[in-house]
Design a protein around this nucleic acid. Structure first.
Lengths: 138, 138
DNA sequence: GACGAACTACGACGGATGTAGTAGCTTGTT
DNA sequence: AACAAGCTACTACATCCGTCGTAGTTCGTC
């Protein structure tokens, strides 16, 4: 039997995000953090998610006194990148460009952000030295 | 009781995408299209998804002879936009900018695509003439 | 040393999802 | 008219997901 299911569910992600925000901490602290954001979950529910996150290897835990301290094992960037890739795969068959254009056109960026983007593009332009492994992901 | 569940599941989306690709068509054609992409689903499975899509109002159908012809009722853009918003909400608390920057930096865009993006930015620039101070976004 | 508070382990439960089988209706072809 | 092929409706079922409740353990306090 291969490990049951290793993907992050939405609710699990919420809990993981709390862990990223807080750093290594206890079930109770995570719960408090969620409550502070208006997410009312029972203590045992949070515990369940943390347990599942541990089973799926997204967090580790070590006992400290009576309780466990949970710690994120994967970075926010990693998870973010991977979720994003899935979405791009799903919606645009793997091509990032349509997504970027869509976002830029959607008028959701402030002038500052547009400026930042322009700057970034110029930088890229300069060092356009054929990065290896363009890895055509398809 | 509000209608059970109105969200698109992943598998349902795959089927809906086939409908977008093909235009109004039959279960069998949808199935063939999916098979052509290496997605081997039983005829009745495809039928199930189309039925669920109909229940969730993402498609309509009308009988044509013995079989039904299914037709997408929501546009690709609409669904794409909404899925994207959810992701942005989930991962970046609603801010699009970090996502755009992330994508541009990830080196997944071709020179052509970067060019296109630059062009788009220039257009936007023209029509949005604002000299913003150091306005802090969020 | 018994009590209550806090913690964890485990089980549970209804609804969603992915996937498909079966049965029965329809229709073109012998 | 009887059949085979194709179509839909309905049912099924394992797993996942979101959400907790309960029970048992541990530890600090009267």
């Amino acid at each position: 039997m291969p490990p049951r299911q290793t993907e992050l569910s939405d609710a699990e992600l919420e809990v993981l995000k709390a862990l990223w925000d807080l750093g290594p901490t206890s079930v109770r602290e995570v719960m408090n953090h969620l409550h502070a954001q208006g997410r009312e979950l029972a203590y045992t529910t949070v515990l369940t998610f943390l347990t599942r996150l541990k089973a799926k290897k997204y967090v580790t835990s070590k006992k400290s006194g009576q309780a466990y301290i949970y710690k994120a094992k994967v970075s926010r960037e990693k998870v973010t990148g991977s979720r994003l890739s899935s979405l791009i795969e799903q919606l645009f068959d793997g091509a990032s460009a349509p997504l970027v254009l869509h976002l830029v056109q959607s008028n959701k960026l402030s002038s500052d952000e547009l400026g930042e983007l322009r700057r970034l593009l110029n930088d890229l332009d300069d060092r356009d030295d054929q990065a290896p492994g363009v890895g055509e992901g398809r």
